[in-house]
Simulated assay, not measured.
Amino acid sequence: MKRWPCALVAALVLGLPPARARADDAPSTAQACVTAYETAQVQQRRGELTAARESLRFCARSACPAVASNDCMQWLGDVERAIPSVVIGAHAGARDVADVVVTIDGKEVARRLDGRALDLDPGSHTFVFTAAGRAPIERMLVIKAGEKNRTIDVQLEPPPPPDAPPERAAAPPGEPAQRDGEPRRIAAFVVGGVGLLGLATGAVFGVRAVVRNRDANRVCPGTDCADPAALDANRDARTSASIANVGIAVGLAGVGVAAYLFATTPARVHVAPYAGRDRGGLFLSGSW
């Protein structure tokens, strides 16, 4: 572009032909044309091509002096060819996404993508793409003069995962952390202990019932007996037998419940009975 000499500017302001405008607004119109003419040259030197285009459109009007409007018209074509443009698209996987807010250099330029080109000044620009429920994406791009319809396609990130549950606090030093299934294992030990105690009680009183019944039969072998010692031994045998039956029933129930609790805990616990020539019991193996 060229810069007019002061004499030429004055000629434009003062020498506007009467046929081009009314006498009362000719100086103001000519002055506005000159201002737009001068401003467009400054804007173009700064690389502000989109602003220069607006100034050139103003001074290219027929209301401006012919010498100015002719230059502005020519320069306007040059500027429009130099203004770059971009076409923005967004995808989530293979699906197009239109509800995306786009800002360029901190200024919002679109609230929804429609596939139309956006004109920009050449140079580096920061693009930010924001979609509901997704993390914003920021890109810095260098846009070149004369670059038309450059495609900028962004792949939107998937929605962030839901917040993870808070981690269980670590056990204090020297105190083991509570493991999964520990309450069930504790209950199994307690119930199993009660069961074993019941079995032991039943065994003791069962033996006592056998011994006392033998004592009664030794004194009075028949059914009819009036001996006080035999009668006392017989009553003691019956009582011991009743206690033995209850103890064995409670013991078997306790051992059964304990075995069930061990079998259904997350830890790998195996419960198996064993019997020898003179002893028996339950064998527990696993990790807990």
Rank of each mutant, 00 (worst) to 15 (best):
V100N: 05
G115A: 04
A263P: 00
A258N: 01
K144E: 12
Q31T: 15
V109L: 13
Y37S: 08
A200I: 11
V207P: 00
V250Q: 09
H125Q: 09
P158S: 06
P173K: 06
D105I: 10
G256D: 00
A110R: 15
P172C: 03
P159G: 06
Q44E: 15
P65D: 12
T201A: 09
L12E: 07
A23Q: 12
D105T: 10
D163S: 13
A226T: 13
A267S: 15
R268P: 04
P172S: 02
L261W: 01
V9T: 07
G198L: 04
E157L: 15
R238H: 01
A253S: 10
N245W: 04
R139Q: 13
A275H: 05
G133D: 11
D278L: 14
A132C: 02
L197W: 06
G276D: 11
M73G: 04
N217Y: 14
Y260D: 07
R61I: 00
G93M: 03
A170D: 10
V204Q: 06
A233P: 00
D224M: 06
R185N: 09
G195D: 01
K148A: 09
S287W: 11
V250I: 15
Q43G: 07
E157V: 10
R150L: 11
V97M: 10
S285R: 13
V207K: 06
R134A: 10
C72H: 00
G281C: 11
P136G: 02
A94K: 08
P266A: 08
T103H: 09
K148H: 11
H91E: 09
D227L: 07
S285D: 13
P162M: 05
G286Y: 10
G202Y: 00
D96G: 04
G15M: 06
M140H: 08
E167F: 02
R184V: 01
E48Y: 12
E138S: 14
A169E: 12
Y260P: 00
G146H: 05
R20A: 14
G280N: 12
A169Q: 12
G286H: 09
E108W: 04
R277Q: 13
I137V: 15
D119W: 08
D114P: 02
R3T: 11
Q178L: 07
E38A: 14
L231S: 08
P159N: 09
D278G: 13
A92Q: 08
Q44V: 10
N149Q: 09
T201G: 06
